[in-house]
């Protein structure tokens, strides 16, 4: 994985730029700003978060002001403005999930990983946070893991243990 720091000039991989090109073509002439969210998703999938340098690069590509990118990236909860763990466990914390034990699951994750919500584990592997309704309330409790947003439903403490074990083995 490429490391991006604030001071660095980012060069996006050629494959990513060619994906950018396909996306921008969806919109009418002059409306290329519409591509901003799809592009930010691609950048985050590549680097794990959005550094200022990478946002500036997106602004340059779309020919818009950097502030137009920052204000969008900071508005939407899916975009990370600081580095995260390699795996970010996002657990739904909204009402319907809480009716069937989401709060217990979050506590369990906190204890098992030994990481507070929003922080990164020492080995850099894990972070977790509560997020709002993931539109899977009938399969509650649920969590998702980016960047492909795989879903884990009907969570129990056992299934969470297994999941964490599997993720550790993936490394």
């Amino acid at each position: 994985m490429l490391k991006v720091t604030e001071t660095e000039q980012v060069e996006f991989p050629a494959a990513m730029i060619s994906e950018f090109e396909t996306i921008v073509q969806r919109y009418p002439e002059g409306k290329q700003k519409s591509a901003l969210l799809p592009l930010l998703h691609l950048v985050q999938a590549e680097y794990g978060w959005l550094s200022t340098a990478s946002m500036d690069r997106v602004a340059g590509y779309l020919d818009i002001h950097p502030i137009e990118v920052y204000e969008v990236a900071s508005f939407y909860t899916m975009f990370f403005l600081k580095p995260q763990g390699k795996f970010v466990l996002e657990v739904c914390r909204t009402g319907p999930c809480c009716l069937v034990g989401a709060e217990k699951i979050m506590k369990h994750i906190e204890v098992t990983l030994g990481v507070k919500e929003g922080e990164v584990s020492e080995d850099g592997m894990f972070s977790w946070r509560g997020v709002e309704c993931l539109a899977a309330c009938g399969m509650a409790p649920v969590l998702q893991i980016g960047p492909d947003y795989t879903f884990y439903e009907n969570l129990t403490e056992e299934s969470v243990n297994q999941l964490i074990k599997d993720l550790k083995n993936k490394i």
Binding site: S34, L37, P38, L40, H41, V72, F75, Y76, T77, M78, F79, V131, E132, C133
Partner: peptide, 8 residues
Amino acid sequence: VQPGGGAY
């Protein structure tokens, strides 16, 4: 298809 960014 256009993706959103996580905002109700």
